[in-house]
Nucleic acid binder design. Sequence first.
RNA 1: CGGGGCGUAGCGCAGCCUGGUAGCGCAACUGCUUUGGGAGCAGUGGGUCGGGAGUUCGAAUCUCUCCGCCCCGACCA
Length: 571
Amino acid sequence: MRTSQFPLNTVKETPSDAEIASHQLMIRAGLVRKLAAGLYNWLPLGVRVLQKAQAIVREEMNNAGALEVLMPVVQPSELWQESGRWEQYGPELARLKDRHGREFCLGPTHEEIITELARNEIKSYKQLPLNYYQIQTKFRDEIRPRFGIMRSREFIMKDAYSFHLSDESLQQTYDRMFQAYTNIFTRLGLNFRPVLADTGSIGGNASHEFHVLADSGEDAIAFSTESQYAANVEKAEALAPTEPRADASEVLSKESTPNQRSIEDISTFFNIPTSQCLKTLLVKGDDDSVIALLLRGDHTLNEIKVEKLDGVLTPLTMASDEDIQKVAGCNAGFIGPIGLDIPIIVDRSAAVMANFTCGANENDMHYRNVNWGRDLPESNSIIDIRQVVEGDASPDGKGTLTLARGIEVGHIFQLGTKYSQAMNVSVLDENGKNKVMTMGCYGIGITRVIAAAIEQNHDDKGIIWPTALAPFQVALLPMNMHKSERLKSATEKLYIELTEAGFDVLFDDRKVRPGFMFSDMELIGIPHRVVLGDRGLENGMVEYRARTDSDNQDIPLDNIITFLKAAINQQ
RNA sequence: CGGGGCGUAGCGCAGCCUGGUAGCGCAACUGCUUUGGGAGCAGUGGGUCGGGAGUUCGAAUCUCUCCGCCCCGACCA
């Protein structure tokens, strides 16, 4: 391709509303342009990258035995009513009516549709297991789209859905998908980790997320220092402390603490560590009740864990000021478990605290040196409800946890029978008996993968594409070609040779200054650069430089094709 | 939805407080010079100042209202 035929829509200035590197660079390199909040146009250069990513995903999905289908973006409400998600989903589901007043939505995902397709098309157990996938646009009316392509409202996703007669068969396909995902992200040149995940609103049993590691990631991931254990912090279990509880050595006292509301306030006021303070949170229960959650002061609540508990209202809702006044008789900031007559759930770490400080259920008052058993009854609901922190013991018993940030680019689930049951998807088994199919589902955010790749691979000059994603492999740059016939014909000749040798070449035939060409090619991240100048040609030499190098290499013109083949294969 | 901010040329912004000729930089286009790291000079085009209503002799500027966008908190590929 020639730049005269393939305009590069690069911009020198960094857009003011772009926060993270990938967003800035995708705009600057001319991959995308914003149309409206969370909606983007993809320019020719961006489309080339998208196609590279899609091709790899297709290949690996096909290799893993999945079959490509294509389902509509616009979906009839009836199916969503049937699964119950028309009511559940809320405003994130974009709804619309056709001219007849019939209700539809823009698909945020395709479980309902695939289930409908499967129950019509899969008639015998002999057709199972079956794994359908598609690469399709999704729309989710996100509360707050941000970070450009990373969290847009419309995005492209590869989603696959598998159908099985047994859990063993589901596990087999799940494992196969796990491997396919590993292959895909490896081929894409990403530094990623599969981690144990929560199953979230989609529901189901086993689940892994695939995260690209990047500081700008929106998720926190916990890794074991000693083993392969890795989990989303939402999911990572905080084990019960192994140290025994200290003795109740100090005398209980009640002290005046005017205006000392937060854990930090109290910690400073009494000059004690925050880990010696007890945090009491009140949340709403199922039936208009209020439930108390107790945590060590330096720990934070894990909402996902709490939402799974019986009796707790989902989604998790903090008690109102009126509720707090009613059950505790004080304002938030002075609540404590002593004398509190509501269900109390105690975090494992909070249960081994001794001589701790907590609110006295009286404004401007706290208790000091409180002890379980002595000053309040031992709890019989001690449960893990906190977020793990760096240094916690790894849940598999090997090593401790470290935390890192990740971008979720893939997610695989064992759905079980959640949708097949609700939507009555069954086949006849060997014995002629009706059997509800069990399902798996497997997603990859294609557009997000592009953003994540940039997030992980860039420098101050621009994008550094992994070979597999690069829109072009080789940039062919003649220096002031318009001034030299010899240079022009040599470059044209090399362009043809490279193209015939199978390289994706971007030949910069614009009449622009060298510095301009260099900057453009670095910004758009072409991995390999070949520069031709009159000086070098005198000696039959061209210059080569990888995007990651800081120096040129002189290569004989006659060898350049062999050289490039080796350079590309090496990566 | 709650809190904060913004909307003026394709992009980035000034002007608004204190009402009176709509500006600067970059980009685009033309010409000349320049040509190994985002060139220089000269010139040209480009605006419903987010929309509407109001106050005023007069509104980008003051008031009201609607719309859009961005940032901070609850979702997910």
